[in-house]
Nucleic acid binder design. Structure first.
Lengths: 131, 131
DNA sequence: TTAGGTGCAAAACCTTTGCCATCCC
DNA sequence: GGGATGGCAAAGGTTTTGCACCTAA
């Protein structure tokens, strides 16, 4: 299937590339509407799916509530605040050797691993102290 | 709030402790009904939530779609087949040192990390070859 | 006795889909 | 022109919730 360039798709991609947050579909929808007020939610969902297939954005699938997306493509780890749910990138080298080791040990075909740290972000920790 | 012991809650906990699979709510519901045919799905959801709060079971969330639960409580890694969605435990020591290192580097309060390997399970790999 | 728990059904949520008009190549 | 895409709304699937009735402690 040949993919077309539409302003809806371009806008969504642009938004994802311009933020380092890891937005939910809802947040993306609100942002796109500032530029294209008539866009529908279905279109946002469809395009996020397509952009994932095209390998232009990635979806965070580890243990969250709703899906979150990001424009960054290289493999890296995340941190999720258990209180506010915010997600941020962690600058720590990805241990590819771990995949190989576990693949050998288990005989499973492992293509990658996803890792998420859990705890309290700076804001929430400060807030927790006040209570 | 004082938690009571009800046969519904006991049964659900028993089922989770007796399996090493990582069942979905639906599967659990089907199993409980073999013992308590009149149990409702709402009760299963409510009790899984309560058991999580009590720290007796833990929840593995898949992408906002279906939750999976397990009775095992010690920290460990998982493998998820990208084709059939099955989840299994991985017998590899959890790197607690990683949490400390990243906490120091980032200043974040990290309590633990979750790690999931992705790839193809034995069955699905065999099937993939046939196609 | 009484606060917590259950069943039932409706509501709430997130996501997908069918249909037809529209737009890109 | 013709297939890909968009907008709209309805449907789908999972989870939560309100309410009246139970039941463990």
């Amino acid at each position: 299937m040949i993919r077309r360039e539409t302003k809806q798709r371009e806008t969504i991609l642009g938004i994802l590339r311009s933020t380092s947050s890891h937005p939910t579909t809802d947040w993306i929808y609100d942002e796109v509407r500032k530029v294209l007020p008539n866009i529908s939610k279905g279109t946002v969902y469809r395009n996020l799916k397509v952009l994932c297939e095209m390998g232009l954005v990635s979806e965070l699938k580890l243990n969250g509530m709703v899906s979150r997306y990001e424009g960054r493509l290289d493999s890296h780890y995340h941190f999720r605040c258990e209180r506010c749910g915010r997600v941020s990138d962690i600058d720590e080298p990805v241990d590819k050797e771990l995949d190989r080791r576990v693949a050998v040990k288990t005989g499973l075909k492992i293509s990658y691993h996803q890792l998420e740290f859990r705890g309290l972000c700076h804001d929430c920790e400060a807030q927790a102290k006040d209570e």
